[in-house]
Amino acid sequence: MKEPINFMLVGVGGQGTLLAANILADAGLAAGYDVKKSEIHGMAQRGGSVSSHVRWGEQVFSPMAGKGEVDILLGFEMVEALRYIEYLRQGGRAILSTHQIPPVAVTSGGAEYPSQARFIGVVEQVTKDYLLVPAVEIAQQLGNARAHNLVILGALSAWLAVEEHIWLEAAARHVPAKALEVNLEAFRRGRALAGQARKR
């Protein structure tokens, strides 16, 4: 019997959250789970807020989990992670990129982008079991900021009982060949980071 896991991936259109969701769904299937992935296309893609649901289980029915039903939240951008934080169940787990993309309301409208202290304050009302990942900085060090989503997935992989080769093969099926090596390295960096955090 496979323990069901509900994932939710949130970020900004164009960040690559959909690609990460594809790899996550594919890895689940390869690991023997039934999987469903749901997302909304269309107007939300134009620099707007984007969310995807991925569910693994013995038999998955609903394509998405409700508020308070997500086991692991993957946040690719700080404000978006806060926007959807109530989908995470109380005490669930979260991997949160510290990347900030200020919306137009902030850059030109004068609205306030939350500080990291406020961000952590909100997250900790829901869970203490979270990992902050400087995913974009790590990916930039590797020479391709766009690989930040694989850093996040790598960190996630350290939390799950799915063998590493399954992840790497799933990534290879979705990442363009010319960017594959840097993406796999990004994955390994994320995995190592989460592994070290657990040992501490």
């Binding site: 900004v12 107007m43 939300a44 893609q45 134009r46 620099g47 707007g48 807020s49 409700g66 508020k67 308070g68 039903e69 404000v79 978006e80 806060l82 926007r83 934080i85 109530e86 989908y87 995470l88 169940r89 109380q90 200020p102 919306p103 137009v104 309301a105 902030v106 409208g109 609205a111 306030e112 982008y113 939350p114 406020r118 909100v122 997250v123 009302q125 829901v126």
Partner: peptide, 20 residues
């Protein structure tokens, strides 16, 4: 009933779709 967390978030800046 599933009771979701209800953290105090304060106002978050909206991110509606905009012309690119």
């Amino acid at each position: 009933r599933v009771v979701p967390p209800d953290p105090i978030k304060g106002d978050l800046p909206p991110r509606p779709p905009v012309l690119c």
